[in-house]
């Protein structure tokens, strides 16, 4: 749940980018940081291993300014996608308010997408959160690879595989090129803020 400081009139919202390894979670945050750094005036913290993989998490905080009299601070996190880092993923999910699931559009990653959604459901359950209730947005990433002749899953297939029961907003995207990165971010923040407002009413 969001951290609310009534005295300081401050709200901290935690949004986690989840998904299979090498799916583009960090690339999403890097795009946001590189494109809007002059406006969000922040630092991105990324802890990587030698192979340029996320070891613990990436962290990108920024302030949205006052909304309904409260200073709203958004914290974007990524989790390490590799299967072996499940404990870290669980840890990062603590106190999460909204999730962006970055799925890999490559055909060869179909199974890992589905496993990762299941993993998200399980890890949320450890905090007594339901994947059906938490604000969630799907991002079908790497659509730009179609131009390179790499076989991709169709939007319909990805919807059927991942979103047929959840029925949450989804976007095709290219985190590398920035396509729909901001749209995804705006959507998850809006959904999360709306859910928090209902929760605090």
């Amino acid at each position: 749940m969001a951290f609310v400081n009534l005295k300081k009139k401050e709200v901290q919202v935690k949004i986690v980018y989840y998904g299979p390894g090498r799916g583009g979670k960090t690339t999403n945050l890097e795009y946001i940081y590189n494109e809007f750094n002059d406006r969000i005036k922040t630092e991105m913290i990324a802890i990587k291993t030698q192979g340029d993989r996320t070891l613990f998490f990436d962290f990108l905080p920024f302030e949205m300014g006052k909304i309904k009299g409260y200073d709203v601070k958004i914290q974007l996190y990524t989790v390490p996608g590799q299967v072996k880092y499940d404990a870290t993923r669980r840890l990062v999910l603590r106190g999460v308010d909204g999730v962006v699931f970055v799925a890999d559009s490559m055909k060869v990653r179909r199974k890992s997408n589905m496993l990762s959604v299941k993993n998200l459901q399980d890890n949320l359950a450890t905090y007594k959160k339901s994947i059906f209730k938490i604000p969630l947005v799907f991002q079908y990433n790497k659509r730009d690879l179609a131009g390179d002749g790499i076989p991709l899953l169709s939007h319909e297939t990805m919807e059927k595989d991942l979103n047929s029961r959840l029925k949450v907003p989804s976007f095709e995207a290219s985190a590398l090129k920035g396509d729909n990165v901001v749209k995804t971010l705006k959507k998850i923040i809006t959904l999360t803020m709306s859910a928090l407002e209902k929760e605090f009413k």
Binding site: F36, G65, T190, E197
Partner: peptide, 17 residues
Amino acid sequence: APITDEVKKRLDEIFLE
């Protein structure tokens, strides 16, 4: 007014591409 209007407006200001 719903909070979403205010949030969307602020997000548009910050993330103008």
